[in-house]
Amino acid sequence: MQVTVDNPSLLKQLDEEYAVSPEAIAFYRENGYVKLKDVLSPEVLHYYGDIITGLVLKLNTLTKSMEERTTYERAFLQIMNLWREDKTAREFVFSRRLAKIAADLMGVDGVRLYHDQALYKEPSGGFTPWHADQFYWPLSSPKTVTVWIPLQDTPMEMGPLAFAEQSQGVEIGRNIEISDESERLLADELTKLNFNINDTPFELGEVSYHAGWTFHRAGPNTSGTPRKVMTMIYMDQDQTITKPLNSYQEADWTTWLESYPIGSKPESSLNPLLFVRE
């Protein structure tokens, strides 16, 4: 897909390769996530962050007060598939640099986009309950990964993403949607099983990648400013669509996979290839 070059030097940075160390790849495959420093420059984050923030403000439909919202609604404003709304946002979402990191971590020859989403935790926004993303996805393989990109420094009071290390390999909680119940049950189980939790802050330019079955959560935003985050979900180019197992997967199959046939590759116009090894 052709993109418009608004700022050639910044777009060049989004295409340049980032050298993922063997140690980082090994850490990701063992623990189900990895945090990488200096992946994106402050200039890239400020420029594209302003575009993303503008789209969030324009497209957001959640106007209820915090007191009226559910736990999920208090966690963040969630705006999806910004790449279809704005050509400059598309430049960011289609970053070859970020997509290649995903392919390197998973050890695959190419990745497709599942969808993107902006996650903005407002001041006084609540915690994000423990959950695993792939509960929502009608996909056959665990070779999925989400990049979590803070658009500002993210200290503890803003609610950085926290990961239960090595939880991608356990079967607990794979039938639980994100909710107060998932927070209670998974917090208890993860404690019983003695999983190490990494809940450290994020520096500007630092991003994380976590596997689809890795359990993660985030604390509340007790600061006075929004915690602004952009994410993209990648899947192995050889992924296949499976029969939905719950109503959420039914909705995802229709919304993000264009109801492509079960057993086929997700090759619709909504799921472009973002990186393929030459």
Rank of each mutant, 00 (worst) to 15 (best):
G110C: 10
A75K: 08
P138S: 06
M106Y: 09
V56D: 03
G126N: 00
D104G: 07
Y114K: 00
W137E: 05
L45A: 09
H115L: 05
K100E: 08
D86E: 10
H115A: 02
Y114N: 15
D116C: 09
E67L: 14
I101Q: 03
Y120W: 15
A24P: 03
L139A: 13
K121S: 02
A75N: 01
N31G: 01
P150M: 01
A24S: 11
H131M: 12
E157C: 00
L57H: 12
A103W: 04
I101V: 11
K100R: 08
N31L: 10
T53C: 15
H46G: 07
Q152F: 06
L105P: 06
D50A: 15
G54E: 03
I51G: 02
Y136S: 12
S65H: 03
K87A: 07
L57V: 14
A75R: 05
A89D: 04
D109S: 13
R96N: 09
L77A: 09
K143D: 14
I149S: 10
V145G: 00
L55F: 05
L151T: 07
I79C: 06
G32T: 04
T61V: 07
A164W: 02
K64Q: 11
T88P: 00
K143T: 12
E23R: 13
R96Q: 15
S124T: 13
A24T: 10
T128F: 11
P155W: 05
L59S: 10
Y120L: 08
N31D: 07
G110Y: 09
T144F: 00
P42T: 04
V56R: 02
E43W: 02
E68Q: 13
T154F: 04
P22N: 01
G159V: 06
